[in-house]
């Protein structure tokens, strides 16, 4: 069990602000945030490479905030792997146990770990000849052999191709099933939802939302979290009637009927928005006139960004897009049914 209590650290460029986390034993916990947001600093605090300005870190109820790096039962797999270039793969893996066991025992242990991470064929190799995926596995084996209570993975899929990512993902799941607590830092939404038991979304040095991935992404509490799921239309609103909410006190949305008036968020899938050159005669509510500001093609279709005092993103399939023949700076109407809106009540009322 790992517990972070009110961790604060100011490194100038990077900051940690009042971080509170509770990670259960055997949990696969993902910290999701943009690249360069300082997520790695959080891992460095847990590993002991950085000392927080204040706050406490507990590992299995023991306060390890001021404990030496060497004494912490925390294994850190660095983003750049940090495989020792002057030692071969065997020597790298054996580094932490070389002085603790007999030569034969060290050899047995290295082979055992190498089998788990599937690198037995690499043991005599010079690290300079390893591919990114192989090097990642060596770093992982080197950490696992110490049998730490918790493993910290810093952007483990960075600079790996898709095939290697799949293999490594199943390896991490395997290690997690062996009972290891894993804290995994990433900027990749897909990576987080496929691996995490629980997730914390990290933004500007703070954890903005945490919980089970399905819950976090079904109920994003900020535009930042919504953006990770690919939600482009996310607005902070205030209800003025049981079926009406306003954005910035002037733009009104008709929303599904709510029991209580509250502040909250309006979330819309861009597929649910419709676009036309004339106003929709059937829909009376949620109609917005605007100008097409951008058209972004993707694999499945086009995202059309319309500026209608609020920025609305409409997804149109390729075939429909061709039929509509939309142009930049053209005036259009965007409309959607109230039942396509997901209204999320904010924690801060």
């Amino acid at each position: 069990m790992i517990k972070l209590e009110n961790i604060n650290l100011d490194l100038g460029e990077f900051q940690l602000k009042d971080i509170n986390l509770h990670i259960e034993e055997g949990e696969y916990y993902v910290i999701l945030g943009l690249s360069g947001a300082g997520k790695s600093i959080l891992l460095e605090c847990i590993a002991g490479l950085q000392k927080p300005d204040n706050g406490k870190i507990y590992l299995d109820h023991e306060d390890i905030t001021n404990q030496k790096i060497q004494k912490r039962s925390v294994g850190y797999v660095f983003q750049d792997h940090a495989v020792f270039p002057h030692l071969n793969v065997f020597e790298n893996i054996a580094y932490s146990i070389k002085r603790k066991f007999s030569k034969q025992k060290v050899k047995d242990k290295v082979i055992e770990i190498a089998e788990i991470v599937n690198i037995t064929h690499l043991l005599k190799r010079d690290p300079k000849t390893l591919s990114g995926g192989e090097s990642q596995r060596v770093a992982l084996a080197r950490t696992l052999i110490r049998d730490p209570k918790c493993i910290l993975l810093d952007e483990p899929f960075a600079s790996l191709d898709v095939q290697l990512r799949d293999d490594l993902r199943s390896l991490f799941r395997k290690i997690n099933r062996m009972g290891k607590t894993i804290i995994h830092v990433t900027h990749d939404y897909e990576e987080s939802v496929t691996l995490a038991h629980k997730i914390a979304v990290f933004h500007k040095g703070k954890i903005v939302q945490n919980g089970k991935p399905s819950h976090v992404f079904a109920n994003p509490k900020s535009k930042f979290v919504a953006r990770f799921k690919g939600i482009r239309n996310f607005f902070v609103v205030k209800m003025i009637q049981h079926n009406k909410a306003v954005y910035k006190d002037k733009i009104a949305f008709e929303i599904p009927e709510q029991k209580k008036l509250s502040k909250g968020f309006v979330m819309l899938n861009s597929q649910d928005l419709k676009i036309s050159r004339k106003p929709d005669p059937i829909n009376e509510s949620n109609k917005f006139k605007g100008i097409i500001k951008d058209i972004v093609p993707s694999m499945k279709g086009n995202e059309v960004v319309v500026d209608a005092d609020i920025k609305l993103t409409v997804f149109i399939k390729h075939r429909d897009f061709e039929k509509l023949d939309l142009k930049l700076n053209e005036e259009v109407w965007v409309y959607f049914r109230p039942d396509t809106i997901k209204y999320i009540v904010s924690d801060k009322q």
């Binding site: 590993a47 002991g48 490479l49 790096i69 060497q70 925390v74 294994g75 850190y76 660095f78 750049d80 940090a82 020792f84 270039p85 580094y95 932490s96 770093a139 080197r142 950490t143 110490r146």
Partner: peptide, 10 residues
């Protein structure tokens, strides 16, 4: 990083 990795490995 290499020195930090060594510390982390005990």
């Amino acid at each position: 990083r290499l020195e930090q990795a060594a510390y982390n490995l005990g």
